[in-house]
Design a protein around this nucleic acid. Sequence first.
DNA 1: AATATCCATGAGAGCGCTCTCAGGACTCTT
DNA 2: AAGAGTCCTGAGAGCGCTCTCATGGATATT
Lengths: 333, 333
Amino acid sequence: MVTLRPTLEQVAKLAGVSRATASRVVNGAGGVSAGVREAVRAAVDSLGYVPNPAARSLVTRRTDSIALVVSEPTSQVFGDDPFFIDVVRGVSAELEAGDRQLVLMTTDTPAGRERVKRFTSVHVDGVLLLSCHGNDPLYSALGKQGPPVVCGGRPLYGPSLAYVDVDNVGGARQGVEYLIKSGRRRIVTIAGPQDMNAGVDRLIGYREAIAAADRRAIVAYGDFSRDSGERAMHSLLADEPELDAVFAASDLMAIGALAALRNTGRRVPDDVAVVGFDDIEQARYAEPPLTTVQQPSPLLGREMVRMMQRILCGDPPDSPMTLPTQLVLRSTA
Amino acid sequence: MVTLRPTLEQVAKLAGVSRATASRVVNGAGGVSAGVREAVRAAVDSLGYVPNPAARSLVTRRTDSIALVVSEPTSQVFGDDPFFIDVVRGVSAELEAGDRQLVLMTTDTPAGRERVKRFTSVHVDGVLLLSCHGNDPLYSALGKQGPPVVCGGRPLYGPSLAYVDVDNVGGARQGVEYLIKSGRRRIVTIAGPQDMNAGVDRLIGYREAIAAADRRAIVAYGDFSRDSGERAMHSLLADEPELDAVFAASDLMAIGALAALRNTGRRVPDDVAVVGFDDIEQARYAEPPLTTVQQPSPLLGREMVRMMQRILCGDPPDSPMTLPTQLVLRSTA
DNA sequence: AATATCCATGAGAGCGCTCTCAGGACTCTT
DNA sequence: AAGAGTCCTGAGAGCGCTCTCATGGATATT
């Protein structure tokens, strides 16, 4: 503010070269003799020169920043769920390695969506879209034109976009198969919302495993929150008092289920086994510690960035990527 | 990428006016006749014109974006603690209202700090600094020159910077006073790390209340995490078997303390009362539900932005702002 | 020795925008 | 009716940078 930032021109003058040459050195382009290069570097250091990104991006038409758009219709969801912050951490770490900036945008209104659309069309090189709802209107809005998009989580409908997802189907199947192998007879599920891909896919995984074992699928729905899990568990208990295992599509719901089970006098895992999904911090401290399907959230963020970087380099488009999940055995199953 | 974005020049041509006039309309500057204004607006709409921010900021010397720098020496801390995400939500919401962009930077290495220093010096209009450690070197590094800085949480040392903080001292005092009023005799505390302002201030609040009631301060230290709370509780129990109340400087530590109390056969609140600090989601579901001092994290984010906006408007510098806390009574005290 | 090739460098155009300044068309004074 | 003021508009100069292209000297080729 107070002191005007030095310009390339000043660096060039101090180094006794032209602006073009100074630019070459600053950008690491070749074709500059060693002596000149050193002189320019010295000038940069002594002046404390930092390139003006606006001037640069005006001509290069790149901004070296990418947006992480978090479409968040129910702001509660993200608050309780460490998933989001883990993804952000991954994105941020991977981006820093590539020297790009992270512009974070959250959206929970149609007006916000409009802002995002306008903004991303010029201000960023790419958009990472993280939406809990797989049918978010942003998917199609951003897909049409403008910068490339990489989604976190498979979009449920709309245009085919590049995406990175977690193996929700496989993870759920694995969790349920484990319950079957442990000799559980009547395995129910607390499914997530069916307008989110995680909700849909985890239910598919449950159904696949159940069908493969010739059992009957018994489903209640929640919204991934703890309370919804508790309610769903109560209703399942009312309908199927004989149940001896439950697969919950989120840890929070599993923890709610644990409470319901406790309140109705069931012992876990003796009477009822419980498997969750996510492996959040709280799972470790649940009473008893929760057996759950772990998903690699920070890795999701990293891989989204990597995919974007490949797109930005002009590499041939990747096929969607699916990250593996892993069953973590603790005490509830 | 494919289609070149329309420029102001094209808008002007289509509207039959000069670039200068088109610019006036786009920026809402006065002194344009109604007819011309409408013509330009129509041209903007039909072309789908979006101003190029790089070109604009090249001349205005503003970027209309501010950085949220999260200095995160222990990446664990933020992961478990919903505090950070709440602040981000507040920042983001308030910023969108003002039409500025949020650039998120995290830092956990000296190299990262260097990046932040360089980056923020040119790319953003202001810096919001959120550091859990009150003696973070970034405080002084960013204070020197470059864009204005607003800190979340009072910096422990270093230059006097604008900041917004939560009333940690008052909140802690209030919590402890409540324990005293409830007739508790031997009130211990699990304090947070003493290199974080929240850790320091909450301990001060405890000491003040204890001193005012002529009691003896009994302190153990944790790092705000659940496990550290559990450990600290065990050690306090060993030293002071007669204790009948504990004030924990974070909910996570309080929850750890609850586990330790349970394991050693103490009933809460009958034998020992517990008060936490933060009021995170889990506090409601603790066993039993945790009485705690609530801090307004999203508001902290909002107020940081507001203070920054005032600074950017050239208003006289604010004095530091302290946000109120509130005791939330549940079942542990 | 003459020509072709290569490399390091500089000159200069232009990216899209804002903003100052000058000028033309009015209206308001006196 | 002439001067003064007011309002709207356009011309044009940059903001700091990148990048193409021309230049000229050194080196390689015949």
